[in-house]
Design a binder for these strands. Structure first.
Length: 531
DNA sequence: AAAGCTGACAACCGCCGTTGA
DNA sequence: ATCAACGGCGGTTGTCAGCTT
């Protein structure tokens, strides 16, 4: 193990005749004027030396270790070895479910701040967490699953958001791609999906296209909705295109967006665009300083590569069911019992086509407007009432998400318990199924159940709260015998709701996105306003 | 049994912020 | 004010073990 490198260590030197400079297998090291520093795996002898040194002198002053002990290791290496392996109270072994859960939550909040995350996990090192996360990323990326439970990702918004005052939409530079991919900032797709919808709302007053928009990732794994629907209008979707996942029915009728796009949309060269999420202030600074076009007009659509994978997979039937891992077992009959929605003043037909009825966005816009009206009369609720029975039966997605077997999980830390998934579900009634569900539906098969999404296997949904019901609409059934779990709730939604305007929605104080009007949504990217 | 794949782990590298001379 | 050393942090890479094909 250990990397053999000819690179010269940037700190610490060791005399060539150090008794430990060549002990055991030397994996190479730096040499500088007769000074050789060992690299590679540590031996027990080296460990002992380091431990003794720390016992005697305490931590810190790592470069002095080599000087005092003759240990042929640079200061950095000593520090790392101590921090990751030798220091007391280190917890070894696999992460517990609770730790995993916490890691996910922390990552959603902090991004790749491993050290900070480690501070919340006593006995765990940043390296451990990082390795775990990276492994998890690989696994989930392979599986085509979002990194976070959607509601969790929303829940995580505040911390990063609070650190930023500018829109969190990043321009299409490599950094963004890195963030999304290498750095594990692959945003929960539902977030993008949902935001993306909002991005296509120029018809809705109050949404400045200049806000929170950026042309985005040139990542092959970060697809632009615009790229598909606007940049190449009328273009038939290719089999491996992400959004072709929604290719059946009106959902996929991209041309609708052509009618709603703004000039800026047209004028900008959208090859892709993106919203890096969760927001990492550090990355944001870099990205924003790297010439992000603040005026580009769309939020990102993170149709990750898994969409392509999904596309290749069998599309769900209307009564899609899975068995085994990641089972969706829609049971429409019981959904009613979960959704007790206040009646809408102008209830939307279960599958009422929008006036244009030509596409997802228009449908969404239409319904958003309708909902906005409705909310004027019925603020303070959040509901998926527009997911009617017929709709449920039509596509099964809602059924999936709200089956009686549902073990929704509302994050105890979440004040609101809403999710983007719920939001999306709510605003996509005519679609019949949410992107979230689509995504889940297509990809849940490919990855084993993630226990980290479980807290205790018990439903934590407060069904007295409509948002909770909505927020629960992300269900991921576990592997055989495993606990089911739902997403965490989203506190961010509530925050957003509280901070969003009130142009079309009645109440910004209602739960989560129930209060988010279309007009409000840009505020999502004005997180500095969020308390 | 061998090859390939994947996960887990360990360690190094480079960047950056802090601190003290 | 400047600069160098130090330490922390995040990214990356290498190795090994276990599993699958």
């Amino acid at each position: 193990m250990g990397r053999s490198s000819t690179a010269e260590s940037d700190d610490g030197v060791l005399s060539a005749d150090s008794p430990l400079s060549n002990d055991g297998d030397n994996f190479g090291g730096s040499s500088n004027g007769g000074v050789v520093l060992k690299k590679g795996p540590w031996t027990s002898a080296e460990d002992s030396i380091l431990v003794e040194y720390v016992k005697k002198h305490g931590e810190g002053n790592w470069n002095a270790v080599q000087k005092h002990t003759g240990l042929a290791r640079c200061g950095k290496s000593c520090r790392l070895r101590w921090a990751n392996h030798l220091r007391p109270n280190l917890k070894k072994g696999a992460f517990t479910s609770e730790e995993e859960r916490l890691i996910i939550e922390l990552h959603a909040k902090m991004g790749n701040k491993w050290a900070r995350m480690a501070a919340h996990l006593p006995g765990r090192t940043d390296n451990e967490i990082k390795n775990y996360w990276n492994t998890r990323i690989k696994r989930r990326q392979r599986a085509g699953l979002p990194l976070y439970p959607p509601d969790l990702c929303l829940q995580s918004l505040p911390e990063n958001q609070q650190q930023l005052s500018s829109p969190r939409i990043y321009g299409g530079d490599k950094s963004c791609h890195d963030i999304l991919q290498s750095n594990g900032y692959r945003a929960p797709d539902i977030m993008f999906d949902s935001f993306n919808i909002l991005a296509y709302t120029p018809e809705i007053p109050g949404i400045p296209t200049s806000i929170s928009m950026g042309n985005g990732f040139a990542s092959p794994q970060s697809y632009s909705f615009v790229h598909q629907t606007m940049g190449m209008p009328e273009r038939a979707q290719e089999p491996d295109e992400p959004m072709s996942d929604y290719g059946s029915g009106a959902v996929n009728e991209a041309p609708a967006f052509n009618r709603t796009r703004t000039d800026s949309c047209v004028n900008k060269s959208f090859q892709s665009f993106g919203l890096c999420f969760p927001y990492d202030p550090d990355h944001t600074k870099k990205l924003l300083s790297s010439g992000v076009n603040q005026e580009t007009s769309f939020m990102s659509f993170s149709a990750s590569e898994h969409f392509a994978d999904a596309q290749k997979s069998e599309l769900p039937s209307l009564q899609y069911q899975e068995t085994g891992l990641g089972v969706w077992d829609p049971q429409p009959e019981s959904f009613d019992s979960l959704v007790q929605s206040p009646p809408l003043s102008g209830p939307l037909p279960s599958h009422c086509p929008s006036p244009g009825s030509s596409g997802l966005l228009e449908d969404l816009i239409y319904e958003a407007k309708s909902l906005g009206k409705s909310e004027n009369q019925s603020s303070g609720w959040a509901t998926s009432s527009n997911v009617s029975h017929g709709e449920i039966k039509a596509d099964g997605s809602a059924l999936r998400t709200c089956s009686p077997e549902f073990k929704g999980y509302i994050d105890p830390n979440s004040p609101s318990g809403n999710s983007m998934g719920s939001f999306f579900n709510r605003y996509t009634p005519t679609i019949g199924r949410s992107l979230e569900n689509d995504m889940t539906m297509h990809h849940v098969k490919s990855e084993a159940f993630d226990p980290s999404w479980i807290v205790d296997g018990e439903s934590k949904v407060d069904y007295s709260r409509p948002d909770a019901i909505l927020g629960s609409c992300w269900v991921k059934q576990g592997s055989p015998g495993s606990k089911q779990k739902g997403p965490t709730a989203d506190s961010t939604a509530a925050r957003l709701g509280d901070n969003l305007g009130t142009n079309t929605s009645a109440s910004a104080s209602t739960w989560g996105f129930s209060s988010c009007s279309w007009n409000n949504m840009p505020a999502v990217c004005q997180m500095s306003d969020i308390p």
